[in-house]
């Protein structure tokens, strides 16, 4: 634990500001993140230091989160409900901008670029950092149009043939093409839940993002559909960085390389997934994974 604190202080002394207020209200001894939150600059995709999020009325949702996310890794974020894991995820592509009264402070960098920087643009950022949501949310359009939505928006295809190709390859990557190739013009809402979620994944990868954020992507699905999606995530790791928020510890254990444990808005522990589940270093993490709460 001391080592981790030192490590953090060494890595980011400039961004380690004390969180505004509220910190003392928590009796838990979360003074910093234990484990290995930082990648020492090697292959860092996302770099975050001192991230705080406030909602309307100065209610703080997450406190001073410091973590690195590596290239082509699957990082799972776990923790009890309301611990801030989804909020943090939404910081990474500035989805929190769409919530009125939400304020994010701190330093988040994608490939070294400050995502809140002046030259940065949320639209471009979201094209680079795609997102899949908890409930499958296909648009009220045909399957084809759902997948073509992003490429059309961003002008990625010069002609119909290119667009067709993007749609086909995205659907194929999402493992959905075989199932829907005969009914691309039918509404996306007509698919089953698992198919809808894969459609949403296909829609996301159609713009070839660098990172895919997944906010509990299987929580609304049955076990079989969940298994399909988990396999898919494993394959997607080859080409994308994936951050996944999940309620299921088993899922985190199955698909991720690293795991981050959040508790009451604080990042308690980050480590290799195996280490987190076999040898948690923080008492709270241990309580959680052994099922004492959460």
């Amino acid at each position: 634990m001391t080592e981790a604190t030192l490590n953090m202080a060494a890595a980011a002394p400039q961004t380690h500001k004390p969180a505004a207020g509220g910190r003392e209200e928590f009796a838990h001894d979360i003074t910093g993140t234990v484990g290995k939150p930082f990648l020492d600059g090697k292959d860092t995709k996302f770099f975050s230091r001192g991230v705080n999020v406030f909602y309307t009325g100065n209610k703080q949702a997450i406190f001073d989160v410091n973590v690195d996310i590596g290239r082509n890794e699957v990082i799972a974020m776990i923790g009890p409900s309301g611990c801030g894991k989804s909020t943090f995820l939404r910081c990474l592509n500035r989805m929190n901008d769409t919530i009125a009264g939400c304020r994010v402070t701190g330093d988040i960098r994608l490939d070294g670029e400050d995502i809140h920087g002046k030259e940065q643009d949320p639209v471009l950022l979201r094209a680079r950092v795609g997102m899949v949501f908890q409930k499958p949310n296909p648009f009220p359009k045909s399957i084809y149009d759902n997948v073509a939505y992003g490429p059309r928006l961003h002008g990625l295809a010069a002609n119909r043939a290119e667009l067709d190709e993007i749609v086909e390859s995205s659907l194929t990557k999402a493992g959905l093409f075989k199932e829907v190739k005969d009914r691309l013009q039918t509404p996306g809402t007509g698919l089953s839940g698992g198919q809808q979620q894969r459609l949403c994944i296909a829609r996301t990868i159609a713009v070839s993002p660098e990172v895919i954020l997944m906010d509990e992507p299987t929580s609304a699905l049955d076990p079989i559909a969940t298994a399909t999606i988990e396999e898919l995530i494993d394959e997607l790791r080859q080409s994308f960085t994936i951050c996944i928020v999940t309620h299921s510890m088993q899922q985190a254990a199955r698909i991720s390389q690293r795991t981050a444990y959040f508790h009451m808005g604080k990042l308690v522990e980050v480590n290799n997934t195996k280490t987190v589940f076999t040898n948690p270093q923080h008492q709270l993490t241990e309580n959680y994974i052994t099922g004492r709460f959460g």
Partner: peptide
């Protein structure tokens, strides 16, 4: 969720409204 899906793809507000919300 419908709006979030569109914003998450990098659509602007007006694009989301015109192509997702209004349909």
């Amino acid at each position: 969720a419908m709006r979030d899906g569109s914003y998450g793809m990098g659509a602007t507000k007006s694009e989301t409204i015109k192509q997702v919300v209004l349909p």
